[in-house]
């Protein structure tokens, strides 16, 4: 097996992931693109483990670790997305532009956003 083949496949997958992260608007699609990039790295790790014939099997073990970390990342990312959806009623990245709370002109304490949050949202505090 020429090592160029897996390396080129992985480079193409990584570039597709980059395109998805930059071009997609829905947050879940962005998460999927991140998964594509992680998989590209995994393919590289396995291919180079086979090439270098590592006695510790560092490449394949690291691939397993990356898969586990990807699972944890997707779980946390989806929890964050769901919390976001509860508060803003949208998961579109274009409409989530606020990094800070803008000073409310009328003294109202509502969270600024595209749509006003439901009254039981967790972001309001007691």
């Amino acid at each position: 097996m020429h090592i160029v083949y897996p390396a080129v496949v992985s480079a193409l997958l990584f570039s597709i992931g980059v395109y998805g992260v930059l071009a997609r608007r829905n947050t879940i699609l962005v998460l999927m693109s991140v998964e594509l990039m992680l998989n590209a790295v995994n393919l590289n790790l396995v291919a180079f483990d086979v090439w270098l014939r590592d006695r510790l099997h560092a490449g394949q073990v690291l691939t397993l670790f990356v898969i586990v970390i990807a699972a944890a990342e997707v779980g946390l990312g989806l929890a964050i997305i769901l919390a976001l959806y509860r508060n803003r009623r949208t998961v579109d990245l274009d409409r989530l532009r606020l990094l800070a709370e803008t000073p409310a002109p009328t003294g109202s304490t509502s969270v600024p956003g595209a749509v006003s949050p439901p009254s039981s949202g967790p972001g309001e505090g007691p």
Binding site: A11, S15, Y19, A23, R25
Partner: peptide, 23 residues
């Protein structure tokens, strides 16, 4: 229709450049 954001051409450019350099 609105799954892609407005910076699609820029994203395609960056992705093509990444692919070219990496390959």
């Amino acid at each position: 229709a609105d799954l892609d954001s407005g910076n699609r051409p820029a994203a395609a450019l960056v992705a093509l450049a990444t692919a070219a350099v990496l390959v």
